[in-house]
């Protein structure tokens, strides 16, 4: 298992100490720092309202950093928006395309801004997505809108593709199309994809690097391999039932009850093992947790069922 770190790679986007407040009470981003390596698929995960979209909007130059810096392709998106935006393909969360436009008009309009627009590729995507050029956007389904948006984001072959919750609310077929397009984009040499999602199995399937945001704070940012290598899930069994969760060094989350417990640890596996044995418990199974388990453990939230 190779453990690449973000710092080892050339970056296309770099965020340092970014903080953003909305009003007095809402802290959307709290001192976030991350780097997006060139040629990677970078997954941004977090619960609803965690700050993913806010971060993406900073990368696009739509929000001015209140403190900290944002650089994309080595430039500030605020100071040099033309340079930055020329290299970005963007698909917004709500696929905000104008309903009155036809698809061919949308394509014609968008291609005017990008000298590298690839007509053949656009045509290919149009056929792949089975979109009718003369169809008005307001007559399209949500999935078709997403596909139309993706087409305009991809057809100029941008060095950086930003997808904000690209598959939210879409069916499995459209999700597969989008993921396929993402993978093809990465297959083009040197291209980078940053996408946010709360579908963690999807992120796990395609992402090389993952940044996890919770309540505006960056709780984790590393390659998927490194993240998985760092976390362990231990299934415990005790003879005498425990009435409360045990204290285990490095434990991010302890779930279960009675004689059977599960502990997710952050990498200090030896310390955890020792502590568990000291407590008189038996480790039945030691596995690599899924990204979803890690996310739930890191976010520090329990489900209603568990609380109940």
């Amino acid at each position: 298992m190779s453990e690449r770190t973000v710092a080892d790679h050339e970056t296309v986007a770099e965020v340092e100490g970014l903080t953003r407040r909305f009003g007095r009470t809402t802290l959307a981003l709290d001192n976030v720092s991350l780097r997006v390596p060139k040629g990677s698929v970078f997954g941004l995960v977090g619960e609803n309202g965690a700050g993913k979209t806010t971060l993406i909007k900073h990368l696009l130059g739509q929000y001015k950093p209140q403190s900290g810096t944002v650089r994309v392709f080595g430039e500030s998106p605020i100071e040099a928006p033309e340079k930055v935006l020329a290299g970005i393909g963007y698909l917004s969360e709500d696929h905000d395309l104008p309903g009155w436009m036809r698809i061919d008009e949308l394509i014609n309009y968008t291609q005017a801004f990008y000298p590298d627009w690839d007509d053949t590729y656009a045509e290919h995507l149009l056929k792949t997505f089975e979109l009718q050029p003369e169809a008005k956007i307001k007559t399209l389904s949500r999935g078709q809108r997403a596909q139309a948006g993706l087409l305009t984001a991809l057809a100029h072959r941008p060095p950086l593709l930003l997808l904000d919750e690209p598959s939210a609310g879409l069916d499995a077929v459209v999700r597969r199309d989008i993921l396929g397009a993402v993978i093809r984009t990465v297959a083009d040499e040197g291209r980078t994809v940053l996408f946010s999602s709360h579908l963690l199995d999807e992120v796990e399937r395609v992402a090389d690097y993952i940044a996890m945001i919770s309540k505006g704070k960056l709780v984790l940012c590393d390659s998927l391999d490194a993240i998985k290598a760092k976390h362990h899930s231990l299934t415990l069994h005790v003879e005498q039932p425990w009435t409360k969760p045990p204290t285990v060094p490095g434990a991010l989350a302890v779930t279960g009850g009675g004689r059977d417990w599960t502990v997710v640890t952050d990498g200090r596996i030896e310390e955890a093992r020792t502590a568990i044995r000291t407590l008189g418990a038996t480790i039945l199974e030691e596995t690599t947790p899924s990204l979803e388990d890690i996310f739930v453990a890191r976010s520090g939230r329990r489900s209603i069922l568990e609380e109940g």
Partner: peptide, 9 residues
Amino acid sequence: SLVYLKPIP
């Protein structure tokens, strides 16, 4: 996004 996210001054 049709205007402000396009690479134009």
